[in-house]
Amino acid sequence: MIILSAENISKTFKGLKALDSVSFQVEEGEVYGIIGPNGSGKTTLINCITGFIRHEKGKVFFRDKNITKLPPHKIARMGITRTFQIMRPYFSLPAYKNLVIPLWGPRARKLGGWRGGGKHGDRDTVAIDILEEIGFERDSRVPYKLASTLPTGYLKRLELARCIAMRPEVILCDEIFSGLSVGEIGGLIPLLEKLKLEGVTIIMVEHRLRELFKVADRVMALQFGEKIAEGKPYDVIEDSRVREAYLGSDEV
């Protein structure tokens, strides 16, 4: 079943075409990768889908429901969550309090349960549970440290934890592997696979192709805001237009 579909999304920034009628459909429970060179419109696409940027043309459907003109918080409430490329934690709060905020939010409160907000006063415990699951050592001081003192690896995980706290149906990851060491990525991949097993659809914008291809089921390639290829990961990088976009053309 198709969970998220985008039809002919176009976005221009003062005449510059950032997205030129991009369409794609994501099946429920799959990991869908979006690749492309710098400035090809990957992050803009995520911003358009989640409502952080208004696109001029095109429609976005979530389970046959039109979510094109909705504000970001309403889209998030439906279960379409996102991470930010530049991490945006609440720097003045401890790591676990960072999660209390999404747990307080309407979606987690409505859904309740283990990953929900639970009753008042329970959120701290739920937050620490989620942090433990995502790789913060429970008995160490790390979950209690201020977010401003945490290193990049933890902050990336905190971004993902914020999405998990909302009991998402779709997670849009904006370059969660960038800036991480190979070891840290190795820690994240099982986590993504676990989320996939739980039925969460994951859309990943990524530069690190080798790591992406370990988890992705299908991949789309963008260049200058246009979709140039789509399909199985290793088929896509065999595509001549994708090679040209990344490496330049053979003709001199």
Binding site: F52, H73, R77, R82, R88, Y90, W104, P106, R162
Partner: peptide, 17 residues
């Protein structure tokens, strides 16, 4: 306090800033 730190994340958490 989250709104003060960073309202984009609040929006992404499904809360109306």
């Amino acid at each position: 306090r989250g709104v003060k730190d960073n309202d984009q994340s609040i929006r992404a958490s499904g809360i109306n800033v």
